[in-house]
Design a protein around this nucleic acid. Structure first.
Length: 888
RNA sequence: GGGCGGUUAGCUCAGCUGGUUUAGAGCACCUGCCUUACAAGCAGGGGGUCACUGGUUCGAAUCCAGUACCGCCCACCA
C-alpha cells in the first residue's frame, strides 16, 4: 500500500465498515464465552442523528469493542422507538402541509400515512450510526412497534390489568392542547413564567342574584377561568373573612351565584386569603371540589378555547380570552389591581404548549410496588449508577412515584386492549376474539359489532420499558408461563446502559421495574449517564436554535474516528459536554499522527547484518515497560468508566512516548542522503509495539486502527483487529522507567540550552556529566536524542558552558567562548535561592515536634529525603557558583 | 419551597479515603524552526494565593460549617 502524507478517512471508513458487515463481525449468537451485552437506547424511528446520539453511541461502541477484544461475546442490539407523540406530531404536520386535518380522516387512513412516513424516514438514523462506526448486530435490529414487540406491550397491559395494577380513572391530567393528548407528569416541564396577578372584586349577592355594595377580593393568574368558578374558599381560621360565612357571591360579568366555603387548603397570608375554586381547571381546586361536593363546569375545550359554557368570549383561545376578559373586568369595575407575578407554569415537553389541567378518563398503572422493588435494585448495588450522584435523584423519585398515566389520546402506538360493551362495561383481553368471549360472559347477547375498542394508545415508554427483555424474547413480558428463550437466558441481564440523565425516570427506572417484575432480575449492571451536549457557550443543542452541527457533515469532513475522539475528549461521566469543533480537529490531527508514524515504520528496511544500536536497545527496553505500565492504567480507567481518561492516556502513550521518544530513538540515521537499514530485531519489536498501540486505540478509533492493522502484516481472509486481544500489562522493572526519565530530563536540558542559545538542531554538542552515578546504559539515548557527545568527567575543570541539574546529577553543555559568566552565575543563584526557600519549608516541618510525632513514618522519611536532596543540590550549586566566580 | 451537584491555568477537566519534591493534563497562547514520518508537525516557554470566610489538624485544593455565585432534579400557594 502506498501511503500519502496525509490521512484521508472517508474511503478507509466506508471500505472497512462494509468489510465488517460482509464478514459478519458484529454478529453475536450465544456460545460458551462470557456474554457482554448492551441494548441501544432506541432513537426515535424517524429521527435523524444529532450530537447527543453521537456521544451516546460512541461511548456504547467503545465499550462493546473493548469487551469484544477482551474475549467476551459482545452483543450490541440496535433498534428504534416508535415515539408516539413525536412521530404522530410529525405526521400531523406533514398532513397539514398536504391540506389534510387529522380530524377529517379515519384512524385507519391516518395510520396508513404514518406507516408510509415511517417507511420513508424510519431507519435513516440506523444508517447514520453505521457511518459512526457502531458495531451493532444489525441482524437483531428491533422496532418497538413491530408486531412481536407490540404484542409484548399488549400482553403486559393485560397482565397488569388482571393483576389489578392497571385501572381506569377520571383524573385531573396534564392536557396538551396542541398534541391533543394527555401527557404524564414527567412530560411536563415547569418553567418560571412572568404573568400577572389580577385582583378581582366579587360582589356579595343579596340572595336574589343581585349585587350588594359589599365585595370580597380574590387574586388570580387566570381570570379567563372565572366563568367556571364553583365557589370562593377561605381558611376557616381566617377571622378577616368570617363575615362571609353563609354568604353567596356573584361571578363578575356573568353574575352567576356561587357559595363561600371554608377549607384549610387556603393559605391565609397568600394573595388576599380568598381563593376562587375552579374544579374543572385546576388540580387543587378539583380536590377542594371533591371535598365540598362542588359542581364541575368545564369551559375550556380540548384545543384550549373557551366553549359555550363560558357564556362569554366563546371560541376564543385561552390566552386571548385572558387579555380580553381583563379589559371587560376593568370596564365593569371588577378589576382592583394588577401585579406583576412570576410563577411556575407547566409546559409540554414535546410541543412546548402550556399544559391545561383537564379532567378526563385515563388509564393508570400503580407504581407503589414496582417503585419499591426498583429502588431496592439500585440501593443494593445490583445496578450501579455512574456517576453515583444520580442515586439520590433516583431515590427521591422512587419514594414519591405517583401512578403512571399510560394512556395517550393518539393513534400512533399500541392501542389499549380494552373493549367496551354497549352498557359501558369493558373487558381487557389480548385479542378481539378473547374480548368477545369475555363480553359474552357478561352479556350473552353481545355481537362482535357491539364491542368498541378503547380509542387511546399506550405511552411510548410503556413499550420501551420492556426493551432489554423484548429485544431478546418478546414472548416473555406479561406471560408468566413462558420459558425464557436461549437469547434471553444468555444475554440477560445486559451489562451496561449508556444514556442521558434526562430519561432516568421515563426509561431507566421503568426498565428496572419491568426487569424486576418479569425477569426477577435487574436489566443491567451499570448505568452510565452521559452529559447533555451543549454548544460552546453552554446552550442546549436544538433544532430551533440552529446551533447543532450535522454529525454527518463532520464525519465527511474529519472522519468518524476524529468525530469520536472529539466527543470523547471532553466527556467525563455526568458532566455536560461543551461541543467545540476544535476537539474534532484534534481528533483528526491524531489520526494523521498515527498515520504518519506508520509511514515511518513502513519505511524501515532491514539489514540482517546490522547491529542493534545501543540507543535502540535502551528504547526498546523502556517502551516495553512503559506500555505495560500504561495498559494497566488504561484498564483501570475503563473499569471506572473513565473513558475520556482512558483515551487521553492512550493518546499520550501514542504521541509522546511512542512517537516523540521511542521512534526518535530507534529511527535510522541518514547515510548518503538515505535512511540506513536497521537490524531485524528493532524493526520487528517496533512493529509489535505498533500493533499493541493499534489494539489499544481500536475501541476508540476503529477505522484507522483496522486499516493499519491489516497492512501491518499479512492477515488471513477473515482476520480483523476487532477480534484481536487487548494488550495485557506484564510485570515491568520500575528502574527501567526511572533511568529513562533521567535520560529524558538530560535530553530536555540540552534541548533547552539549544533553544536558549539558538543553536541549530543539527549542530553536535558536548555534554559533560559530573561523577559516575548517572546510569551508563541510557547514555547512548542521550547522545542520539540530544545530538551530543556525552562524557562522564570528574570535574568540569576550566571548561566553559551552560550547566544544569538533573536530580542531583550535575551536567554541562560545553560552549567555549559563548558563555556569559555573569548570566550563568545569576541563573544559578536564582536556582539556589529557590532551593533554599524550599529547604527552609521542609526544615520548618521537620523541626516541628508535633509533625515528627504525629505524621506517619513514611511521610517523615519523605521529608527527610527532600531535605537531603535539597542539601546536596544546594551544595552542588554553591560549588558551581564559586567555580564560576573563580573562572571569571 | 425542598433536594442534589459544582466553583482548580484563557477554555474543558483530573486530583478530593488529608502529607510523594511548595498544584496536573489536553487544547489555546508566546518564542524559534518548512530538521528527508507528520506544519494536522518539531523544539522550547509563560500561565493558577485551588470561589470567599471561618473551623478541625503537626499538616487542607482535599474534611467540617457558613457565605456568594452557577447548574440540575423534584414541587402547580391560587
Amino acid at each position: 500500500m502506498e501511503l500519502a502524507a496525509k490521512y484521508s478517512a472517508s474511503a478507509v471508513e466506508d471500505k472497512w465498515y462494509a468489510w465488517w458487515q460482509d464478514h459478519k463481525c458484529f454478529r453475536s449468537v450465544p456460545d460458551g464465552r462470557e456474554p457482554y451485552t448492551i441494548v441501544i437506547p432506541p432513537p426515535n424511528v424517524t429521527g435523524i442523528l444529532h450530537m447527543g446520539h453521537v456521544l451516546n453511541n460512541t461511548l456504547n461502541d467503545v465499550l462493546i469493542r473493548k469487551a469484544r477484544m477482551d474475549g467476551k461475546n459482545a452483543c450490541w442490539v440496535p433498534g428504534t422507538d416508535h415515539a408516539s407523540i413525536a412521530t404522530e406530531s410529525k405526521v400531523v404536520a406533514k398532513l397539514k402541509g398536504m391540506g389534510i386535518s387529522k380530524e377529517d380522516i379515519t384512524r385507519e387512513e391516518f395510520l396508513k400515512y404514518a406507516w408510509e412516513w415511517k417507511e420513508e424516514h424510519g431507519g435513516i438514523i440506523l444508517q447514520q450510526l453505521r457511518k459512526l462506526g457502531c458495531s451493532c448486530d444489525w441482524d437483531r435490529t428491533r422496532f418497538t412497534m413491530e408486531p412481536a414487540l407490540s404484542n409484548a406491550v399488549i400482553n403486559t397491559f393485560v397482565y397488569f390489568y388482571k393483576k389489578g395494577w392497571i385501572y381506569k380513572g377520571v383524573r385531573m391530567v396534564n392536557w396538551d392542547p396542541e398534541a391533543l393528548t394527555a401527557v404524564s407528569d414527567d412530560e411536563v416541564i415547569h418553567k418560571d413564567t412572568k404573568s400577572h396577578f389580577y385582583h378581582l372584586k366579587y360582589y356579595i349577592s343579596d340572595g336574589n342574584g343581585n349585587p350588594t355594595d359589599k365585595y370580597l377580593v380574590i387574586a388570580t393568574t387566570r381570570p379567563e377561568t372565572i366563568m367556571a368558578d364553583a365557589a370562593i374558599c377561605v381558611n376557616p381560621a381566617d377571622e378577616r373573612h368570617h363575615w362571609l360565612r353563609g354568604k353567596k357571591v356573584l361571578i363578575p360579568l356573568i353574575n352567576r351565584e356561587i357559595p363561600v366555603i371554608e377549607d384549610d387548603y387556603v393559605e391565609m397570608d397568600f394573595g388576599t386569603g380568598c381563593l376562587k375554586v375552579t374544579p374543572a381547571h385546576d388540580v387543587h381546586d378539583y380536590e377542594i371540589g371533591l371535598r365540598h361536593n362542588l359542581p364541575i363546569l368545564e369551559i375550556i375545550d380540548d384545543h384550549g378555547k373557551l366553549n359555550e359554557k363560558a357564556q362569554i368570549l366563546v371560541g376564543e383561545d385561552r390566552f386571548v380570552a385572558r387579555k380580553k376578559i381583563v379589559k371587560l373586568l376593568e370596564e365593569a369595575g371588577n378589576l382592583l389591581k394588577v401585579e406583576d407575578y412570576t410563577s411556575p407554569v407547566g409546559y409540554s415537553e414535546r410541543t412546548d404548549a402550556v399544559i391545561e389541567p383537564k379532567l378526563s378518563a385515563q388509564w393508570f398503572l400503580k407504581m407503589d410496588t414496582l417503585a419499591k422493588v426498583a429502588l431496592e435494585t439500585v440501593e443494593s448495588g445490583r445496578t450501579k449508577f455512574i456517576p453515583e450522584k444520580y442515586m439520590n435523584t433516583y431515590r427521591h423519585w422512587m419514594e414519591n412515584a405517583r401512578d403512571w398515566c399510560i394512556s395517550r389520546q393518539l393513534w400512533w402506538g399500541q392501542r389499549i386492549p380494552a373493549w367496551y360493551l354497549p352498557n359501558g362495561k369493558f373487558v381487557v383481553e389480548q385479542t378481539f376474539e378473547a374480548a368477545l368471549e369475555a363480553a359474552k360472559a357478561i352479556d350473552p347477547s353481545i355481537k362482535p359489532e357491539d364491542l368498541h375498542q378503547d380509542e387511546d394508545v399506550l405511552d411510548t415508554w410503556f413499550s420501551s420499558w420492556l426493551w432489554p427483555i423484548s429485544v431478546f424474547d418478546p414472548e416473555l413480558p406479561g406471560n408468566p408461563d413462558h420459558e425464557p428463550n436461549e437469547d434471553l437466558r444468555y444475554y440477560y441481564p445486559t451489562n451496561d446502559l449508556v444514556t442521558g440523565p434526562d430519561i432516568i425516570f421515563f426509561w431507566v427506572a421503568r426498565m428496572i421495574m419491568a426487569g424486576e417484575e418479569f425477569m426477577g432480575k435487574e436489566p443491567f449492571h451499570n448505568v452510565y449517564f452521559t452529559g447533555i451536549v451543549r454548544d460552546k457557550i453552554g446552550r442546549k443543542m436544538s433544532k430551533t436554535l440552529g446551533n447543532s452541527p450535522n454529525p454527518l457533515d463532520l464525519i465527511n469532513t474529519y472522519g468518524a474516528d476524529a468525530v469520536r475522539i472529539g466527543m470523547l475528549l471532553c466527556s467525563s461521566a455526568g458532566n455536560d459536554i461543551f461541543y467545540d469543533e476544535a476537539q474534532i480537529k484534534q481528533g483528526a490531527a491524531f489520526c494523521n499522527k498515527i498515520w504518519n508514524s506508520y509511514r515511518l515504520i513502513k519505511s524501515f528496511s532491514i539489514d540482517e547484518g546490522a547491529q542493534q544500536t545501543a540507543a535502540a536497545k535502551v528504547a526498546i527496553k523502556w517502551f516495553g515497560a512503559r506500555l505495560s505500565e500504561t495498559v494497566a492504567i488504561v484498564e483501570d480507567h475503563y473499569r471506572k468508566f473513565r473513558i475520556s481518561d482512558a483515551l487521553m492516556t492512550i493518546y499520550k502513550l501514542f504521541w509522546d512516548d511512542f512517537c516523540s521518544w521511542y521512534l526518535e530513538a530507534v529511527k535510522p540515521a541518514f547515510v548518503d542522503g538515505k535512511a540506513a537499514p536497521l537490524d531485524a530485531d528493532t524493526v520487528n519489536v517496533t512493529l509489535d509495539y505498533f500493533e499493541s498501540l493499534l489494539k489499544l486505540i481500536h475501541p476508540v478509533m476503529p477505522f484507522i486502527s483496522e486499516e493499519l492493522w491489516q497492512d501491518l502484516a499479512p492477515r488471513g481472509e477473515n482476520e480483523t483487529i476487532m477480534y484481536a486481544k487487548t494488550p495485557v500489562s506484564k510485570p515491568y522493572d520500575q528502574s527501567v522507567l526511572d533511568d529513562f526519565a533521567l535520560a529524558a530530563e538530560a535530553i530536555n536540558g540540552v534541548r533547552g540550552v539549544r533553544s536558549q542559545r539558538n543553536i541549530a538542531p543539527k549542530e553536535r554538542l558536548h555534554l559533560m556529566i559530573k561523577g559516575n552515578s548517572f546510569p551508563a546504559e541510557v547514555l547512548p539515548l542521550v547522545e542520539k536524542l540530544a545530538l551530543a557527545d556525552v562524557e562522564k568527567v570528574d570535574g568540569f575543570g576550566d571548561a566553559q558552558g551552560i550547566g544544569f541539574l538533573v536530580k542531583t546529577h550535575e551536567m554541562m553543555v560545553e560552549l567555549q567562548g559563548l558563555v556569559n559568566v555573569e548570566e550563568e552565575i545569576e541563573k544559578s543563584q536564582k536556582e539556589l535561592e529557590h532551593l533554599q526557600n524550599f529547604l527552609a519549608g521542609v526544615r520548618a516541618k521537620l523541626s516541628n515536634e508535633r509533625f515528627t510525632a504525629h505524621a506517619p513514618e513514611a511521610v517523615v522519611a519523605m521529608e527527610r529525603k527532600k531535605e537531603s536532596d535539597a542539601l546536596s543540590k544546594i551544595e552542588i550549586l554553591e560549588k558551581k557558583i564559586n567555580q564560576l566566580k573563580t573562572n571569571k
